[in-house]
Amino acid sequence: MSNQEHTASIKAYVTGFILSIVLTVIPLVLVLNHMMGKAALTVSILLAAVLQFVVQLFFFMHIRDGEGPRYNVMALILGIIFVVTIVAGAIWIMSFNSQVQ
């Protein structure tokens, strides 16, 4: 198989790897050193998570590859719908817990 269209190279993989590690270490440091209030901390952790998601898509998952129908993008949109449903749905449904306690 030809790999010419692939955007990946050793360099891209290493860059992606380092960025992912940095984005993992940041929330860890924030939590361990109690550097922020609760709300700010939550937002920071979520932000780092989303950024890492983007990094992985571009450096590991070859989101820019391929031609023709944009199956990558369609799959991504579908995936985001699933994840939002799962997370937001579960939070909403489980909020009864605080009401009954």
Partner: peptide, 18 residues
Amino acid sequence: SYYTWVHHFFTMGAGANV
């Protein structure tokens, strides 16, 4: 079909809105 799962546990009492 992704948006129906709670009907298996309506009696959990997640509230009328849910």
